[in-house]
Amino acid sequence: MTKVTMTVNGRSVAGDVEDRTLLVDFLRSNLGLTGTHVGCDTSQCGACVVHVDGRAVKSCTMLAVQASGADVTTIEGIGTPEALHPVQEAFRENHALQCGFCTPGMIMATVDLIKRKGTDLDEATVRHELDGNICRCTGYHNIVKAVLSAAEKMAGAKAAAE
């Protein structure tokens, strides 16, 4: 067992894990942060996407020990039911989720996408960038709409702030 310490959603956490423990298992089992999901075992589906030191990472493909010392943000950390992140709000507004299982990963990937690519997005870019996240319910139509809508709103908010 190895002791890991990290910051998760702004809180310092520590735990003893096997060397082979995946980050996603540490988040789900040790910390009870079950919003991050596991949908496959080959890093394909993206249901487990979290942010590690500000970058989107598939937490099923990173060991907990690799994340020791890092700053991790999960779906529970970007907004609350009372104060949603603009991307969360856009997913709700645009019916971009059905069963909800891929949704946390989709939202975390989208937040990262807007951060990397900016708010001036087009449909082709969004579809290409979301290739690492699989949804079986929505056919992506409304997810793409939600991403574009969130980007637009975030651009507007940014402009208003400036």
């Binding site: 919003g35 999960t74 529970e76 039911p81 949603l84 969360q88 997913f91 709700r92 909800g100 946390p104």
Partner: peptide, 8 residues
């Protein structure tokens, strides 16, 4: 939706 988009 509210519970699904917030990981709850």
């Amino acid at each position: 939706d509210r519970r699904f988009i917030t990981g709850r």
